[in-house]
Computed example of a mutant assay.
Amino acid sequence: MLAQFVLFDGFDPLDVVAPFEVFSAAKAFTDLVSVELVTADGPGEVRSGIPAVSLTATADLDPDRADLIVVPGAAGRSLPQGESDLSDAEREATIPAILGRTLTTGLPGLLAKALAAPGTTVATVCGGSLILSMAGLIDGRSATTHHQGLEVLGMGGVNVTRARVVDDGDLVTAGGVTSGLDLGLYLLEREVGPKVALAVEQLFEHERRGVAWRDHGPAPVSA
């Protein structure tokens, strides 16, 4: 399977690197996995939202080739509700502004194509699900994001689920930044198998946290 990891100006490095390294490490245990760093605009160096940290995309985001597409969130300053004393430059460096700028690129169209493609899974870490929501791509779907963005996600017509990883079929979303490791291992188990996922989990000495939510089984009843 080909897993493509999306970069855009201002992305959060850990959102990308954690699941990317999970799938990269899996290549030591199976020949079923390949990985690429990609952008909507093609190969090139992409600046993250952390000064002096960049990654290099080696390919185009291509829903026709990818089996899995992982979308990160942004690294920057959060914007508390009602805050208005920021300069224009400071406001442009906030997470909402960085995420909003992705909507002016070719990324939303490519993600829409990916979500419409049979057999392709779109996954997000942290604010990546907010990009999908702002683009109007996941109305009525179940998803999660960083706890600071849950209210905004719900306002976008998403069924907000407070879980570290939320599996809604061809849409799999994860919460805050460190959840990218859990997302990567969960997807590796789901798409490749538990034996390879366990080997990578042991290599990383990381135990996944919490239950990956799926719309399956009886709903809990109050005591």
Rank of each mutant, 00 (worst) to 15 (best):
A3F: 12
Q4F: 12
V6P: 09
D9S: 12
D9E: 15
D12G: 13
D12I: 01
P13T: 14
V16D: 09
P19Y: 01
F20L: 15
F20Q: 05
L32G: 02
V33I: 10
V33G: 06
V35T: 15
V38N: 03
A40C: 10
S48C: 10
L55D: 02
T58W: 00
T58C: 01
A59G: 01
D64I: 02
A66H: 12
P72N: 09
S87D: 10
A89F: 06
E90Q: 15
I95H: 05
I98M: 12
G100P: 00
R101G: 03
L110A: 14
L110N: 15
K113V: 11
L115I: 00
A116K: 14
A117M: 12
A117W: 05
A117D: 10
V125Y: 08
C126S: 08
M134A: 14
G136Y: 07
S142Y: 05
A143H: 11
T145M: 01
G149Y: 08
L153C: 11
G154L: 04
G157T: 07
G157I: 06
N159R: 09
N159W: 00
A163M: 10
R164L: 10
G169L: 07
T173S: 15
V177C: 07
V177Y: 07
T178E: 00
G180T: 06
D182I: 10
D182G: 09
Y186H: 06
A197M: 08
E201W: 11
R209A: 15
R214L: 10
V221R: 09
A223I: 07
